[in-house]
Simulated scan of single mutants.
Amino acid sequence: METEELQNIVKEIEIFTSGEDYEALLSKLQYLDENFTNPTKENLKKTNIGVKLNKLNKSSSNKEVSALAKKLVTKWKDIILKNIKKHQKEAVNEAASPTKSSDKITEKSDLAVDLVEKIPEKPRNVDIDSIKYELYEAPIIRNKVLKAFYNCLAAETSLPSDEVFNICKSLEQSIYEASAKTAGHYDEKAYTNRYRLIFSNMISKKNKELKIKLLRKSISIQWLMECEAKDLAPEELKKKLAKIDEENLFNAQGATLERAATDRFQCGKCKQRKASYYQLQTRSADEPLTTFVECLNCGNRWKFS
């Protein structure tokens, strides 16, 4: 089902809900049950249909509508989680399975891979390894960044010093060039921000995999120039964030204001007594709450204190 059709269905559901046309609402939900078989995080977020049905499940006075809305939300969530697990499993299998290129790995490259994670017998840094890192006259910060990168990477690898330093030079040069893209010249703030983002993750004891990827050159430096902080997080943290994201996707109602249905208020427009309301403290704490009311019949809104 295309995104545009889903958006139209969301609009129809809102109309049927406000008019309490339960027959039409049930028909539309049954249509979704039969035809919307490709739910993804992307199309649910874009159309907001998961949130709408979650709200319908909690607020509808019609038991059939509420039950079917709940069924659909649960069904879509299960499909999305199943697909995520499937992709994760495929990624693990792909990483574990031998490739054509791996059949041609030489003894030299095998040794290099082993050296990446081999802890050096003696401490390593720019002074001990005699690294001439002061390559730039200005800005001086570039030399300091080269030193920081080398000391961090070399400390936990037995790769030759020239290989490690070449990685550091490529990384620093890319940060420098990326900082000039927006302004057209070196931007100290952009340079510093990108360096701090990468280095803070690089030195983290919980993110050792980032250093390994850099040393193995299995991570694109260009990607490092464009990624966000969450992209550099350790895999364990990424999984936790993904789980939270999934929960939020279907519990977005928790991020909205709780509304209650009532017949206490009469709409000044259509004179009906079918409304929902919520209250907020919009002024100082010793002032009364402000009540916001929405007519469920015509959509008219008003407030009072």
Rank of each mutant, 00 (worst) to 15 (best):
A180D: 10
A180Q: 12
K181R: 10
K181T: 07
K181L: 12
K181Y: 13
T182S: 12
T182E: 09
A183C: 01
G184S: 08
H185R: 07
H185S: 07
H185I: 00
Y186N: 09
Y186C: 06
D187M: 08
D187P: 04
E188M: 02
E188Q: 13
K189Y: 06
K189A: 13
K189W: 05
T192V: 07
N193R: 11
N193L: 13
N193F: 12
R194W: 01
R194A: 08
R194D: 04
R194P: 00
R196A: 14
R196L: 09
L197S: 03
I198G: 04
I198C: 08
F199P: 07
F199M: 06
S200N: 14
N201I: 02
N201M: 09
M202K: 01
S204Y: 01
S204V: 06
S204A: 14
K205C: 00
K205T: 08
K206S: 15
K206L: 15
K206E: 15
K206I: 09
K206M: 14
N207A: 10
E209W: 04
E209H: 08
E209K: 12
E209S: 15
L210F: 14
K211E: 02
K211V: 02
I212C: 01
K213H: 13
K213C: 05
L214V: 01
L214S: 03
